[in-house]
Nucleic acid binder design. Structure first.
Length: 208
DNA sequence: AGGACGATTAACT
DNA sequence: GTTAATCGTCCTC
């Protein structure tokens, strides 16, 4: 295992704050787009009821159980794709959701992929928006982010977290809502606005 | 075989 | 502030 991959063979909570400031570069579709990460969330697999991997491996989550340094993409709400960096040692299912970032290369291609974005800081402000900018989806699920020949690569993972990294509750989940496993760069305009986790339950109103 | 529910976003009022 | 869009996945018959 390379040194780079070894640095990812750690828990999601330990890795997540060190991904802030790192760069994801996509060459999908022959267009280069690079994003500097400003917001992430840690998901710890078997120990974390909010993780897709909590109930054990399935077809969808197989990549999460593999070696670190690969990309886990999943389809959400019937419309969107979101992307994670798989971490932890081979056989565990930890991963870090890429929630937001700043486009630092390929601005024109990113704008073309996200016509709804009014400002450039909105292009990758949110996990599905970020995946849209980089054209991540089913075709990129499982790619090795540490292989120079991959269409999607991760560079610049820090050995120590940057100053200005803050932590708080994760977004959009209905269990384990209190764990402060969302990390972002304080004051950065590309970070998504906070929304409390725990959506309203349908068809489960008060019984009386 | 059927149904509930999303690690969301954009467009409304 | 609210809500529609839209479908794969997983759980329960």
């Amino acid at each position: 295992m390379t040194d780079d991959r070894r640095t990812l063979a750690t828990s999601a909570v330990r890795l997540a704050p060190r991904l802030l400031g790192a760069v994801v570069t996509s060459e999908v579709g022959g267009q280069t787009v690079a994003i500097r990460l400003t917001e992430v969330e840690a998901y710890e697999g078997a120990a974390d009821p909010a993780s897709h991997a909590f109930r054990g491996p399935t077809t969808r989550t197989a990549v999460m159980f593999g070696p670190p340094g690969h990309l886990y993409c999943y389809f959400s709400y019937g419309m969107h794709w979101c992307a994670n960096v798989v971490c932890g040692v081979d056989g565990t299912a930890a991963a870090v959701l890429l929630r937001a970032g700043r486009v630092i290369d390929g601005l024109d291609a990113a704008r073309a992929r996200r016509p709804a974005a009014r400002r450039d800081v909105d292009l990758a402000r949110g996990p599905a928006r970020l995946a849209g900018c980089l054209a991540l989806g089913s075709a990129t699920n499982g790619v090795d982010l540490l292989d120079d020949s991959s269409q999607v690569r991760l560079t610049g993972v820090r050995s120590r977290r940057l100053t200005g990294v803050v932590a708080g509750p994760r977004v959009g989940i209905s269990v384990a809502t209190q764990a402060p496993w969302r990390f972002w760069l304080a004051g950065d305009p590309t970070v998504s606005s906070f929304k409390a986790g725990g959506r309203r339950r349908r068809g489960a109103g008060p019984a009386d």
